[in-house]
Design a binder for these strands. Structure first.
Length: 510
RNA sequence: GGCGUGUUCGUCUAGCGGCCCAGGACGCCGCCCUCUCAAGGCGGAGAUCACGGGUUCGAAUCCCGUACACGCUACCA
């Protein structure tokens, strides 16, 4: 009520702990976080676990882990604490009870005693009659304009029969919802149902809990998915019942499958964890998801953003209205862009844990200390930066920096090997062995001179050497690759390849 | 069915009455560079602004209708 509550921006992400974190949820959390940061406010996490039947063990921890991974760290949450807690709805039951009683006392809500089965039957009947399914107000007391005598209600209450509390939607009202993204939206109260506020198990429904908590936690801006727009008028009615100031509402568009249906599991990955597993970085995922529905606005053509830049530039004015298709190809491009902005040391730090994991199950002839050193990883990081899609590619596509090649791309062997290749390679090995300094420049010079002396083009050596030392035909500059690998490994691998690629396996092409 | 929201290149979008017979990015195609693959540079194809009516000297931009899509319609969130 006090103007003070709205002088500070306070936003929240309020998921149900029902499993993984949906990428759409990540975006909602991000927008809330960014809005708070932009306005020097607070962002908080509240767990909405009012449906006891859908709880998933460990989900809350998972949500917090994912948010923190992404750099969306709440100022207040079940884990981080805060002065408006508890931040788990199941720990706030007395609060909902208290406010529900207030509504009951004010004549804004009433008890109802139907069983779920009875309600189901009622709805079926209404549908059959072509009516919209809506509570028939059977238990609306006479004192509130209904037809149920107070005596019967008292009786039912005394009997201990299971009961719920429903809100009484005022009749003949046009309810205005102000949404910063969509403008004013109007609803006729006649189209609204007398929503259950308190369930038979004593837990509140979303509608009661969200209004009570957003008010108590001084939430200034409710930024949530578009699927909530239709129930916002109920929330508006509740705010008015209580006489509370309403927050600013912003309903963000949905994320879609390629066929424009709501993003779902059936058509691809929807969990943030899935993308983490695929190797996408938090920088790229945050950047990408921010751009699904938001843009920096006219005049700016920026596509790559750091979290700090998003915090500075984010604005609800530039959040679009239409749903956005989750397009993996753009994510891939954004991932590359972020990778290219990392320096060698940063890349090394990211490659190392993945390599260590790999080393638990794979043998290497290299010294572990050498291949996990910052210098080695940093050099590889910078060399392969332009051709890697995600960090873990360094250990897969760039695996030859850590493990001996076991196979040689068949197609390429056919294409690049001739009868003279093996003897040539062996002869060239001697040149390499004699090099006082094993660097890209000296290797290149030696190779050029050798090729020239044989009347060959450099390519006649380059490709076989690449195959022999890496096993594959694609990669960065060969000379730099050899330099990093080091003289010992290079000679060892060429000699091994010569043994393993027998002349008989050489292509027909003369 | 009812209520609500939305609709600009395949995709993400700029655009808030004249600068737009619509700009950028991803993807796609071609050329250049080149030891391969990328990256990079250059160029190209790709949107009658869902459709139909208005309003206006003038509309992608404002209004109305239609179509389609999506959301909601639970003692789920």
């Amino acid at each position: 009520m006090s103007g003070l509550s709205h002088s500070t921006v306070r936003t929240r992400f309020a998921p149900s702990p029902t499993g993984y974190v949906h990428v759409g949820g990540l975006r909602t959390a991000l927008y809330n976080y960014l809005y708070a940061k932009k306005h020097s406010g607070k962002f908080l996490l509240r767990i909405e676990d009012t449906d006891q039947t859908r709880l998933v063990a460990g989900a809350t921890e998972g949500i917090i882990r994912v948010l923190e991974w992404a750099g969306i760290v709440p100022d207040e949450s079940p884990k981080h604490g805060g002065e408006f807690g508890p931040y788990i709805q199941s720990q706030r039951l007395e609060l909902y009870k208290k406010y529900c009683d207030e509504l009951l006392a004010k004549g804004c809500a009433y008890y109802a005693f139907e069983t779920p089965e009875e309600l189901e039957e009622m709805r079926k009947l209404q549908m059959k009659q072509g009516l919209q399914p809506k509570y028939n107000r059977k238990w609306l007391p006479e004192s509130m304009g209904g037809s149920m005598p107070e005596s019967k209600i008292k009786e039912a209450l005394a009997s201990g029969a299971p009961r719920v509390v429903r809100m009484k939607i005022p009749d003949g009202l046009t309810i205005h919802v102000n949404d910063v993204i969509r403008g004013g939206v109007e609803f006729e109260s006649s189209t609204l149902d007398d929503q259950v506020l308190l369930k038979a198990d004593g837990f509140p429904t979303y509608h009661l809990a969200v209004v009570v908590d957003d008010h108590l936690m001084r939430i200034s801006h409710v930024i949530r998915g578009e699927e909530w727009l239709s129930s916002t008028p109920k929330h508006v009615v509740l705010y008015d019942f209580f006489g509370w100031e309403k927050p600013v509402f912003a309903h963000v568009p949905l994320l879609l499958n390629p066929d424009r249906t709501k993003l779902s599991k059936r058509q691809g990955d929807v969990a943030v964890e899935d993308y983490v597993a695929k190797g996408y970085s938090k920088e790229a995922l945050v950047n990408f998801v921010a751009l699904l529905g938001w843009n920096p606005g006219s005049g700016s053509e920026q596509e790559i953003f750091t979290m700090a830049e998003l915090e500075e530039q984010f604005s609800l004015d530039h959040v679009g209205k239409a749903g956005a298709v989750f397009n993996i190809e753009k994510l891939q491009w954004i991932e590359k862009q972020h990778l290219r902005r990392l320096n060698g040391a940063e890349l090394a730090a990211r490659i190392k844990p993945i390599l260590m994991e790999e080393l638990k199950t794979k043998q290497t002839v290299f010294s572990i200390d050498a291949i996990t050193s910052d210098g080695y990883l940093s050099a590889i990081g910078e060399l392969l930066r332009e051709r890697v899609d995600v960090i873990k590619d360094y250990v897969s596509f760039g695996g030859y920096f850590f493990f001996e090649p076991e196979q040689y791309e068949e197609e390429s062997v056919k294409k690049r090997w001739t009868e003279q290749t093996n003897p040539l390679l062996l002869e060239f090995c001697e040149r390499l062995r004699a090099l006082p300094e094993f660097s890209a420049a000296t290797i290149e010079q030696a190779l050029n001179e050798f090729a020239h002396s044989k009347g060959l083009k450099a390519a006649a050596l380059v490709h076989p050497i690449r195959l022999a030392t890496t096993g594959i035909s694609i990669g960065a500059s060969l000379y730099h690759t050899l330099e990093i690998l080091g003289k010992d490994a290079v000679l060892r691998r060429i000699e091994r390849a010569v043994q393993r690629i027998a002349p008989e396996s050489v292509g027909e092409r003369r």
